[in-house]
């Protein structure tokens, strides 16, 4: 039997992402989870700088544009003064993992009771596709025109695995938006992350492998295939740190 499907009121507005950009899917999933957890009147989004900033235009919820990379710190301030409000940072990989690596890691280190959503599209989308710390080896970007030289620029790094392995966090997962099956799985990850926060379990991060058709120079369907073929082998999908109650169950 068919299920009712309706874009949540929280984000039911046109947004100015490029055609085929994954942001729109992730935002909808976040909004669906918020509604299902009855948090729509109890939510603040500290938003990063980059394409993630475009979220602010279409969202009908409290949000604050944070200085570049600092969303996890802003979220910390918000959460400490309003511990019963659900705080979700929404950032890209450039924001959270390049300029904001310190703030991102330190929030995880403190096991701050916030949920971090990072859209990893392996480049700086907003400024036109520069190399990110998550760009793959040999990936061509506008600042690695001959392909990323990992010997000189470092290897792409895996944030959820890092915090899951090193820090006392509540939940860490990576999903993607390449297929209905993966989208549904991603929604479960997001919901777990939010539930972890609502239950006071601590820091949760959900990284999303997301296409950037514009800067990858691919059509949206091909961009999704690129994730399947090239990104997932490097960035495995799954849960790297599960919630304690889930492990017990």
């Amino acid at each position: 039997m068919a299920k009712e499907r309706k874009v949540p009121a929280l984000i039911d507005n046109p947004m100015s992402f490029c055609a085929g950009c994954g942001h729109g899917i992730v935002i909808r999933l976040v909004a669906e989870c918020i509604e299902e957890l009855n948090q729509q009147d109890n939510i603040i989004f500290p938003i990063g700088v980059g394409c993630s900033s475009l979220l602010g235009g279409g969202m009908v919820a409290d949000r604050l544009h944070c200085p570049h990379g600092r969303a996890a710190s802003v979220a910390t301030g918000m959460k400490r003064v309003t511990p019963d409000t659900t705080i979700i940072t929404y950032q890209g990989d450039g924001d959270a993992y390049n300029i904001g690596i310190s703030e991102s890691l330190n929030a995880a280190y403190r096991n701050e009771n916030i949920t971090v959503i990072t859209i990893n599209n392996t480049n700086f989308g907003m400024t036109g596709g520069q190399m990110s710390w998550t760009s793959l080896p040999d990936q061509k970007t506008t600042t690695s025109p001959k392909g990323r030289d990992s010997g000189a620029t470092g290897l792409p790094f895996r944030f959820p695995e890092m915090v899951a392995g090193q820090f006392d966090v509540a939940y860490a997962a990576r999903g993607t938006v390449t297929s209905p099956k993966n989208v549904n799985k991603l929604k479960k990850y997001i919901k777990n992350g939010l539930e972890a926060q609502i239950n006071g379990e601590g820091y949760s991060i959900i990284e999303v492998l997301s296409p950037c058709p514009t800067n990858w120079g691919l059509n949206p369907v091909k961009a999704m295939e690129q994730i399947e073929e090239q990104l997932i082998p490097y960035y495995p999908l799954g849960v790297f740190k599960n919630r304690k109650e889930k492990q017990d169950a």
Binding site: I44, P46, L64, C66, P67, R70, S73, V74, A75, T76, G77, M78, K79, R80, V81, T82, T85, S102, E103, N106
Partner: peptide, 14 residues
């Protein structure tokens, strides 16, 4: 200090 002032920003926003 960078992080500290941004935490203040979050608390002030609330």
């Amino acid at each position: 200090e960078v992080s500290g002032i941004n935490m203040v920003m979050g608390a002030a926003a609330c």
